[in-house]
Design a protein around this nucleic acid. Structure first.
Lengths: 196, 196
DNA sequence: GCCTCAACCGACCGACCGTGCTATTTTGTC
DNA sequence: GACAAAATAGCACGGTCGGTCGGTTGAGGC
């Protein structure tokens, strides 16, 4: 990897960390450069625009999410174990046990839900992929006989994500220590409904 | 109402509308003033600081929420009808059928979940009140015999809010036309679990 | 030893930010 | 209609923003 490419990676990584604190739009090139002991112009030379940097940062977050949440689940046996693992690592990601401070896909959802552009486009695609991933894992559980044959997969994914979202608010904003217990309890009920 | 107070109200109202599009932090005094045909300093004179304005805006949103969601529900008979009405108006609020473009309590959650200060404090309190309101409505349903006597009220509120949160993402960001159907389906399942 | 080229820097631009200060206009009261 | 008070405007300040530009550095190939 060339020096330039390595620096680029460091920039994206640092920007991702900062974005977890101040939002993606809130990461200024000056602050980002300073935190890397780089000049602002030296940093900017790696990207055509701030927006291009933002896209790279989001793509990096997507890669991290797949690596930290999806891949471990795919290593589990098909069916309910895979679905359960997906949820476990998802909770961990949302809580920030993963790399970034918290789930910034949710933050980006509100930052970009009415701000068109390539960042939003990539975000939308990634979230649709995420719902699909959940639905596909649930489908394996149906096929294995762990879940009901007539289970509504899209609805399952919907409920799944909702549990994670409210978990984020209750845990991080409201600082309720029972948040994780609530999430696991809600997920247990969801599983119960999905079973034959 | 004096002229000054009236202007103040208009400022807060306009700021609330703008905040729905660009976030609370994203509302700049210059743009806000221009959209009201006011000078920036003339506008600023009504508030001690931008932060004070933000607090007022949030308080206004809270008042709107109570007016648009909580009050109509309280007019319904105690028990399940009240809970159902609460959810109906909540969905309407989130979808933006209410005054503001979308539920900006959720947006604020991510804007302020790690930014201490009076805005965050007020937000936390308002959200805790909201969970309590849901739980209290559910309690009336228990008392009326509509819900199970051993229903976990806090868990009910948790599940309730989660449905609304994922609804926001699926409807607004992913623009999925089945979002509302999903939300209502999830809520129906929640009700089913709550009944004796 | 020299040349090249990617990598990086410092200075700078115009625009906008929140916030004071001092007029000036508008409002409400007698 | 005069006058005090309230409301608003004008203006300037120090900062930060994304972005540009002309240069400097340094490592690798010849």
């Amino acid at each position: 990897m060339s020096k330039g490419e390595q620096t680029r990676q460091e920039i994206v990584e640092r920007a991702l960390a900062l974005a977890g604190e101040v939002g993606l739009e809130g990461v200024s090139l000056g602050v980002l450069a300073a935190s890397l002991n780089l000049s602002k112009s030296g940093l900017f030379a790696h990207f055509k625009s701030k927006e291009a940097l933002q896209v790279d940062v989001l793509q990096r977050a997507i890669d991290n999410f797949i690596q930290d949440v999806v891949v471990p689940a795919l290593k589990q046996p098909r069916g309910e174990p895979r679905v359960v693992t997906l949820f476990d690592y998802y909770l961990g990601w949302v809580h920030g046990n993963g790399r970034s401070g918290s789930c910034f896909f949710m933050a980006l959802t509100h930052e970009y839900d009415d701000r068109p552009g390539p960042v939003r486009d990539l975000l939308v695609q990634s979230q649709r992929d995420w719902y699909d991933t959940i639905a596909r894992a649930a489908r394996t559980a149906v096929e294995e006989g762990h879940f009901r044959a007539d289970l509504d997969l899209e609805q399952f994914a919907y409920d799944f994500v909702g549990i994670g979202m409210v978990f984020q608010q209750v845990a991080k904003l409201l600082e309720n220590p029972r948040a994780e217990m609530r999430a696991r309890s809600a997920f247990a009920a969801l599983l119960e409904r999905a079973r034959p």
